[in-house]
Design a protein around this nucleic acid. Sequence first.
DNA 1: CGAATATCAGTGACACTGAAATTA
DNA 2: CTAATTTCAGTGGCACTGATATTC
Lengths: 156, 156
Amino acid sequence: MPTEHSAAAQLAPPPADTPGELADLLSHAARHLRRGSTHRLAPLGLTHAQARLLCIVAEAGQPLRMADIATRLGVVPRSVTTLVDGVEAAGLLVRAVDPEDRRSVLVRLTTGGRRLLEAVEGARRDSAEGVFGVLSPAERAELGGLLRRLCREARA
Amino acid sequence: MPTEHSAAAQLAPPPADTPGELADLLSHAARHLRRGSTHRLAPLGLTHAQARLLCIVAEAGQPLRMADIATRLGVVPRSVTTLVDGVEAAGLLVRAVDPEDRRSVLVRLTTGGRRLLEAVEGARRDSAEGVFGVLSPAERAELGGLLRRLCREARA
DNA sequence: CGAATATCAGTGACACTGAAATTA
DNA sequence: CTAATTTCAGTGGCACTGATATTC
């Protein structure tokens, strides 16, 4: 096998940010994030995805349809059914048929869900800060902007 | 709660990139990436993680121990066992006991693995470019730098 | 009838923990 | 004996596809 014998090899270790490398970095960071989140949420009896669901419903400020939740979560509707099942069983959310379109189901917070919300948001914030805390506010904004570009295309 | 009543409010619509938002964006982008990768790799008979494993071994340029692979993948060693099982069953990798430390197992490419490598790298590159293609080279470098900071801390 | 909405059923990919075997 | 390396066994999170009712 022909190996490079020139000194140039020493100049080209990490300069190229190929898409492939970015892909690995992205996956790695996401996994790290979920790990921390999982550990902090376990005492509350929620998983990462369940907590995300709860916060999405809370932030909406109004009951959400399953399909809306799927869009906001970026998953297929069927996945939302199972997700809501778990959180509803925990008593934090309830389903109700939409009176205006009886095909639809509206999901809203229960009193218990609202009571737990602060702790859940805290756990999510803590775990996120555990990952993004190393970045300055300006860097976070930069990262946010770049990621938003990636996700915008994802919807297209 | 005192809300800003000046015209400055119009300059600050989405300025706050809270860690929580970044977390969602990161998860979303990672999921999108894996989806595309999964679809492009399916014809080759490999999963996202398996392809990543194959490329890591190929790039190393030498046989790798299971523990090394675990480190490079950012997962626990036990997960590597199952991962290698699959790719070895496909005939792309082989295990061999390290003669210098018989506790260790060295993983290397087979001829078949080397033959498939180009297609696998192509699929990975294509799927990554499908996600990161919207960014300019400078933006990719920026993103790479930021993600590297996050991952560096992840190892600590 | 055709389209939309949600759910049922089954599957797959992937990482984890804890315990055991082998060797240094 | 202690520590390191890998593997065995079992589990959990989570998202997917395809098919089915219900309703618009």
